[in-house]
C-alpha cells in the first residue's frame, strides 16, 4: 500500500468527517468504519475493534490516537500523522472561530439568555455521559461500588482524583472486580 492517492483519500475523508462530527468524534465512527473496512478493505473489522478498545484505555487524545492507528495500518508513519492532523485540525479551526465570535458578544443581553438556557442542559449531558460510561464499566457490584466511591470522594473531599483511578486499577489488577 504505497499509492499516495490512498493516503490522500484517507486524510480527506477523515478531515471531512471530523468537520461534521457534532457531539464528538465517536458519532462518526460508523462512517469511518464503513470507509476503511467495508468500502476499501484497508483494515479488518477485528483490527478496527482492537484500535477502539486500545485507544479507550490509553490516557490522552483517544479518538485522535485511534485514527492514528488506522492511518498507521494504511500508510505507515506518514499515514498516522496525516490521520491525526485530519482528526483534530478542522475542529480546532471551527472551535477557535466560534469562541472568538462568542467572546466578542460577551456583554450582549441575548448571550446572557442563551447562556442561562444552555448551561443546565449541558450539565445534564455531562452527568449522563458519566452514567453511560458507568453502565459499560460496572460489570458487577464491586465495580459499581468503585464508581460510587469515586464519585462520593470527589464530591466530599479535595483528594486528588488520581488516587481513585489508581485504587480502581489496583483492585482490578488484583482480580477483585
Amino acid at each position: 500500500m504505497s499509492d499516495p492517492s490512498i493516503l490522500a483519500a484517507l486524510t480527506a475523508r477523515l478531515a471531512l468527517l471530523s468537520s461534521i462530527s457534532f457531539g464528538g468524534f465517536p458519532t462518526v465512527l460508523p462512517d469511518v468504519r464503513h470507509f476503511v473496512v467495508v468500502a476499501h478493505g484497508w483494515v479488518t473489522d477485528q483490527e478496527f475493534t482492537n484500535y477502539f478498545a486500545l485507544a479507550q484505555s490509553i490516557p490522552g487524545p483517544n479518538m485522535i490516537l485511534m485514527m492514528s492507528f488506522v492511518g498507521w495500518k494504511v500508510w505507515g508513519l506518514p499515514g498516522a500523522l496525516a490521520s491525526a492532523a485530519a482528526t483534530f485540525g478542522p475542529p480546532c479551526t471551527i472551535y477557535f472561530a466560534s469562541y472568538s465570535l462568542w467572546d466578542r458578544f460577551r456583554d450582549a443581553r441575548w448571550q446572557e439568555t442563551v447562556r442561562r438556557g444552555l448551561v443546565p442542559v449541558t450539565i445534564g449531558l455531562v452527568i449522563a455521559s458519566g452514567t453511560v460510561m458507568a453502565r459499560a464499566a460496572d460489570v458487577d457490584w464491586q465495580a459499581a461500588a468503585v464508581t460510587i466511591a469515586a464519585a462520593t470522594l470527589m464530591l466530599s473531599t479535595r483528594l486528588n482524583p488520581l488516587w481513585m483511578l489508581l485504587a480502581g486499577g489496583t483492585l482490578g489488577g488484583l482480580g477483585l472486580l
Partner: peptide, 13 residues
C-alpha cells in the same frame, strides 16, 4: 476495567 469504573464516578461527580 477498574480504572474505567473509577473514571465513570469522577465524571458524574
Amino acid at each position: 476495567g477498574g480504572i474505567s469504573a473509577a473514571a465513570a464516578g469522577l465524571l458524574v461527580a
